[in-house]
């Protein structure tokens, strides 16, 4: 089933992805074509088949919680687009 323009806008909103009006139609058509190719999966019988999230059996990897030096604040701020003193600068979250 092809996507609608509203669905494309809704998905973009969920992904916090700003898309221009002229991108909506293109994405709608391209995504609809890609989704069509997913239909073949329904022809595979997966009754009682467990899902695979990772390809070899390794679970619950644990280690001792040992204190060690963290990265420096200077390093953390090295790539920040906007900072002020010891803070990252962001727009007000609550308006």
């Amino acid at each position: 089933m092809p996507l609608t323009d509203d669905e494309v806008r809704h998905i973009a909103r969920l992904a916090r992805l700003g898309i221009e009006d002229d991108e909506v139609a293109r994405l709608r058509d391209q995504l609809s074509t890609i989704l069509e190719h997913f239909d073949v999966l329904s022809t595979f019988d997966t009754e009682g088949v467990p899902p695979t999230a990772q390809s070899f059996d390794l679970a619950n990897v644990e280690r001792d919680d040992e204190p060690r030096p963290s990265v420096s604040r200077d390093d953390v701020f090295l790539n920040a687009p906007r900072s002020e003193g010891p803070y990252l600068r962001v727009r007000a979250v609550l308006e």
């Binding site: 992805l17 994405l27 995504l31 989704l35 329904s42 595979f44 997966t46 088949v49 899902p51 695979t52």
Partner: peptide, 28 residues
Amino acid sequence: KRRIMIGTYALSAGYYDAYYLKAQKVRT
């Protein structure tokens, strides 16, 4: 952007079972 959109759609409410979970089972 295309791939983020596909992934977001496949994981979104109402489509998770049909797409993501089904794909993981066929992966098995």
